[in-house]
Amino acid sequence: MEVTFKVYRKDPEKDGKPGRSNYTIDIPEDATVLDGLLKIRDEIDSTLAFRASCLRGYCGDCLVRVSGRARLSCVAKVTAFTQKAPEISLDPLRIVPVIKDLVFDWDAFMWNKIRAVQPWLEPKEPASDGENLIPDAAMKDLRKVMSCYYCGMCDEGCTVLPVDFNFLGPAALTKAYRFAFDPRGKETRERLKILEEPKGIWDCVHCYEADEHCPRGIEPTKRIIALRDLAFKLGITNEKVARHHKSFAASVKESGWLDEGRLAIESEGLTNIKGLMKLLPIAARAMARGKAPIPYLHPKRPGADKIKKIFEKGEQETK
């Protein structure tokens, strides 16, 4: 069948401006996008740059956007994208620095961020000469996380990265999960401290886009939430977040529901004059509209004592 590949081009050795080349090629019905790209590079335009390695969906190297959607070109069938017209478009990911054509900067996109979470186990001192004795259930969860082939689709789907490219992103944070929850590692608290730095777990908006984008069902968002819950349990070290969470929890614990006015003030910190001043115009605007909740005059809900009990019990159990 004849299909036209419309491919994003950029040549750093020429003017470096983005453009597009169209190649019409004859490929078999069951051809993958990579089959087509390899044919183009070999027979039509040898300057075309794109990456590929494993050829069969194991490794993630060949991630491109095929007609808008992030896909591994080696397992994406061309016919899945040509129902309407015999053409497909190929582009690099949306939020990455492009080096040449479809080759983008994986270091900036993902590897450097993974490196930043100190992606290795610091093993505990072994109790014996043999292997660690661990139930398979604990290992199964880690195997699931490690089925990640670093394709970056979670980062491509992330809500935060388009507004802040320096956010560590779901791929790196999911990598961090694998160490924080490995019973063989020794420094969970230290690790969480790194993850709680700005651009880390607390910058995640837990929008679940990553879970929808992950082709392996690893559920990166849930991994990040698990890291946050663990931080909550062990004591949050990010001061701002700690204040916010403490206030939120205290408010629900004491009254059954949320005191938003109090939350806003306590999140900034009661002694943080500059932060509190910043709240003033917001409060003033809200007050003028008759909508600012009045802090600390927050009526208890009926049944609040029952909620408090749940808190006390939950807090007890996690100790």
Binding site: H206, I225, R228, D229, F232, K233, H244, H245, F248, A249, V252, G256, W257, L258, R301, P302, G303, A304, K306, I307, I310, F311, K313, G314, E315, E317, T318
Partner: peptide, 23 residues
């Protein structure tokens, strides 16, 4: 529903919010 608590809004950890919501 008057005699119920906040859902946790994704701020409270699951081990607290699940019981509150179950209630």
């Amino acid at each position: 529903l008057k005699d119920v608590g906040c859902t946790g809004a994704g701020v409270l950890p699951q081990y607290l919010s699940d019981p509150i919501n179950a209630r």
